[in-house]
Structure formats: structure tokens, C-alpha cells
Design a protein around this nucleic acid. Structure first.
Length: 438
RNA sequence: GCGGCAUUGGUGAAGUGGUCUAACACAACCGGCUGUGAACCGGCCAUUCACGGGUUCAAAUCCCGUAUGCCGCCCCA
């Protein structure tokens, strides 16, 4: 028996776990700065939440979902993305009715599932972090959302981000545009790939996303969405752009950017980053405005805006760029007992130190002093506290700074002050570290 | 879902049909060494080369299938 993890899934532990957690912490902290509150919704939803919410024309819903019937013969799906589930939750709980504190500002993170061919930076079980702002319909809200996405990546230390942005307009704009595209492509369909034959009926916007070179050539001559935007959509788009621009954030207009999910309307965006090593992990972040989704899922006619990030992708680029190299993963202290006789006392003293708020460990069993030091090293301990019979009799311990190798005798009856004193330089160091980052 | 490449111990890997009961290195563990992490020395560490089948006197090495990984397509975070 040699079990492997299920294809496209992987175990998260050690350095990677710490790094992923750090990424999530920074993204969450940024969301909190923008007054967002965390929400957690179920992994499982009724399939209809996604088929109606995420949209039946999207590839995600059409062929990438983990869908099955439960023992009660209900069709359920493991979420392929969060937005539909979060909006469903907003509607189920009538959050919009709660004292009228709109807009709702919600952030989330957790695993999502798509049945795809695994590749670098793409897994079947992967993690998303995202935000949804629901109940406000303003270009300023859209702009704030985009700015927050950029800001949270800057907080992680990213320098070279590419913000791609486009508007796909309101319902009316898109209908007109879709018709124009159908007309343009229908004459050229013979030269185009099979997928595009389907796309023209399902959602002609998606043809613009086609990666087949010849199709791209044809798509270049296609009508542009910007020529079909209603006056309202157009002015709204330029207002969003000017807010972003005023903050000095650079963007790139990309009229082939249409996004794969059906609920988007008006402004849509993606953030890309190549790692310093030149590795392309794909879009780090994607999102946009959605006008009709809340209503589509049975709620009132509320607009929303949001984005989602791929946590693994963000982590991978951040790691390649060395942004995670100084994460502090060690414990404060490792207590080293000398001799079998002191184990009980060491156990109790360790507990006492924990109650003072320091992370501390000891080997629990007696062994060679050298191997205890090695354990301390592997735990990343900043200090070792050596305790033998001699010390315990005198009520003292040998506190050794494992980095500088300096050792001094401390009073065990005054552990709190002694340890606070010893840790001080480390706390300051960490403090500076954070300041540099922000 | 389609196409390409890959898969040797905890890790990096050598090995392209017999000399492979798989080199070398690192790590781990044990001991020399029962109060300070080193160095040194000794020991130990894949009867087995992803899994299943085939070819052959002989296979880690060739062939087929399966699984997984990576790359491209598709799609997306």
C-alpha cells in the first residue's frame, strides 16, 4: 500500500504552509484596512448555485466542476469559485436587510475545486482569497476594489505588477456587442477552430479569448467593445479609470479581456506578475463588477464588485521573488535538560514559561546535550535554556543566545523579566522588518 | 478533454541490456564522547530502480499499458 494524494491535490506543511499562511494573513490584513469582514461559506453548494450564479456558458461550470449526487439524491458541487456561494449566503441570510448597513464588505479564503489538468500554479484543489462588496453601484466602489487588490499585493512586497482592465458594459451594451460579434464572425467561421463554432452561439465574447493564432488574427479585426458601450457604461468606465489614475496606479487597457464567468458586467480586471525568475504563473488576481448576480440568485437588485486571487500563485511568485525569505518561523526558547533527574523540573519550568507567553519546547526525554542543541536548532529557537541539577539547586539557568552564542546565568525566580530582557533585541528587529515592508 | 517529456533511498543524483545484492554526496540515526551545538572516526541507511505486463539466457536500462509530475493547448486564480 502506497497511497498518493489524489491527482491535482497536495499536502501543505512546513515552509510552504507557513508561506501560504503569511500570504493569507497579509491579504486579510489589507482587507481589514478597507473595512472588510471575513465570511466563511460551505465548500458544498447545490449545483444550481453555480449553474445560475457562475454561469452556464462558462467552461468552469460546463466541464470543470466536482458535481455529484449526495445520499439524498441532491445534486451538489464543490465550489469552483467563491463569488456565487458568498452571494447565495448574502441572500440566504438576508444580510442586506440587517439594519441597512450596505454595502456589505466581505472577504474570504479557503479551498476551491476544479477538475482540470494540473500544471504549474494550477491545482484541482487550490486556494482562493477574495473580496465581495455588495449593495453599492458606483464607479468609485469599483475603483476602490481594484486599488485594494493592487495594494494588498504591494503589501506583500510585489514591485512589478501589470493591471489589465476593460469594460464589458451593461446588459444593453453587451447585447448590442454580442450581435455585432456574431455578425462579424459568422462570415469567417469556416476558417476558425471548433471551439469558436460553439462559442459564437454560447457566448461570442469568448471568441476574443481564443488562443489559436489564426483565430486571434481574425479577432483583431472584430468590432471593439468600446464602440458598443452605452453612454452610461462608457462614462462610468472612464470615471473608474480616472480614480485609479489619480492614485498613480498604472493600468493597461485590454479590450480582449472579457473574463470567463457570466456574472460580470461593466469593469473587469486582472493582475499579472512574472516572477523575477521569469516564470509565468498566470493571472494572480481577477475580478470585476457584477450587476445582476444578486438578483439572479433570488435576492434584491443589488450590484456588487469583487476579485479573487489564487493563493498558490501569489505564494509561488512571492517565493521566487524572495519576498518570503525572512519569515520568522522559529520558537523563542528551547529548554535543555542535563541529566535524567531534572526532567520533571524542566517539564514544569517549560509550562511556566509558556504561561508567560513565550513559545518554548523541550525534548521531554533525556539524551545527549549535543542532540538537544540540534533539536533546538531545528525548531529555530532563538535561545536555549540549559538546566542541570547544579542550576536547579541554585535556582538559576544558563540562557544561551543561539545566534551570538553568548551565554549568561539568569534567575529562575524572575523568568518573566529575564526573558523579556533577552527577547528585546529580537522584537525590535522584527518591528523594523515590518516597517520596511509597509 | 488533446499532444509532448519525465518518474532511481529522506534529498541531490550516477548508471542506456550482463561487472548493479545500484556509485558518489548530503541529511538522518547509533556509537567513539554521561554538562554546550563543531571537527574527526566507525556503524547504519534502495535484494531494489513509480506500478502492472511483455521481449530476452539476462532489464533500472528495450516494448506496451496504468498512475503521477512537468510543459503546451483549452480554461482560469
Amino acid at each position: 500500500m502506497n497511497f498518493q494524494p489524489v491527482k491535482g491535490t497536495h499536502d501543505l506543511f512546513g515552509e510552504e504552509m507557513i508561506g501560504m499562511q503569511y500570504v493569507i494573513d497579509v491579504l486579510s490584513a489589507t482587507a481589514e484596512l478597507y473595512a472588510y469582514k471575513r465570511i466563511s461559506t460551505p465548500v458544498l453548494e447545490y449545483t444550481e448555485v453555480f449553474s445560475r450564479g457562475t454561469g452556464g456558458s462558462s467552461d468552469i461550470v460546463r466541464k470543470e466542476m466536482y458535481t455529484f449526487n449526495d445520499k439524498g439524491d441532491r445534486s451538489v458541487t464543490m465550489r469552483p469559485e467563491f463569488t456565487a456561494g458568498v452571494v447565495r449566503s448574502v441572500v440566504s441570510n438576508k444580510m442586506y436587510a440587517e439594519g441597512g448597513d450596505l454595502p456589505l464588505k466581505l472577504y474570504y479564503h479557503g479551498p476551491a475545486f476544479r477538475y482540470e489538468r494540473p500544471q504549474l500554479g494550477r491545482y484541482r484543489q487550490f486556494h482562493q482569497f477574495g473580496v465581495e462588496e455588495i449593495g453599492i453601484d458606483s464607479p468609485r466602489a469599483d475603483a476602490e476594489c481594484i486599488i485594494m487588490a493592487m495594494q494588498s499585493l504591494y503589501m506583500l512586497g510585489f514591485k512589478n505588477l501589470r493591471l489589465k482592465i476593460n469594460s464589458i458594459g451593461d446588459e444593453e451594451s453587451r447585447n448590442n456587442y454580442r450581435n455585432a460579434l456574431k455578425e462579424y464572425f459568422s462570415g469567417k467561421l469556416d476558417e476558425m477552430c471548433e471551439d469558436c463554432h460553439e462559442r459564437i452561439n454560447l457566448n461570442p465574447l469568448r471568441i476574443l479569448d481564443c488562443k489559436v493564432p489564426h483565430d486571434q488574427e481574425i479577432a483583431k479585426g472584430a468590432p471593439k467593445i468600446k464602440d458598443y458601450l452605452s453612454e452610461a457604461s462608457e462614462s462610468r468606465f472612464y470615471e473608474t479609470l480616472s480614480i485609479i489614475n489619480d492614485l498613480g496606479i498604472e493600468y493597461e487597457l485590454d479590450d480582449s479581456l472579457v473574463r470567463g464567468l457570466d456574472y460580470y458586467s461593466e469593469v473587469v480586471f486582472e493582475i499579472h506578475a512574472l516572477s523575477d525568475a521569469g516564470v509565468d504563473y498566470g493571472a494572480l488576481c481577477g475580478g470585476g463588477h457584477y450587476g445582476g448576480l444578486v438578483k439572479q440568485l433570488g435576492g434584491p437588485d443589488l450590484a456588487g464588485v469583487g476579485y479573487a486571487m489564487g493563493v498558490e500563485r501569489v505564494y509561488n511568485v512571492a517565493k521566487d521573488d524572495g519576498l518570503l525569505s525572512e519569515l520568522d518561523t522559529g520558537i523563542d526558547l528551547y529548554v535543555i535538560p542535563v541529566g535524567e533527574e531534572v526532567l520533571d523540573d524542566v517539564f514544569n519550568i517549560t509550562e511556566e514559561i509558556r504561561s508567560l507567553g513565550f513559545s518554548v519546547d523541550n525534548p521531554l526525554v533525556s539524551g545527549k546535550l549535543g542532540s538537544a542543541f540540534k533539536k533546538a536548532e531545528r525548531r529555530g529557537a532563538k535561545f536555549a535554556l540549559i538546566l542541570g541539577e547544579d542550576e536547579l539547586e541554585r535556582g538559576v539557568g544558563q540562557l544561551k543566545n543561539l545566534k551570538t552564542k553568548e551565554q549568561k546565568e539568569i534567575d529562575l525566580n524572575d523568568l518573566e523579566n529575564e526573558l523579556d530582557e533577552a527577547m528585546k533585541p529580537f522584537d525590535e528587529q522584527e518591528h523594523h522588518h515590518h516597517e520596511e515592508k509597509e
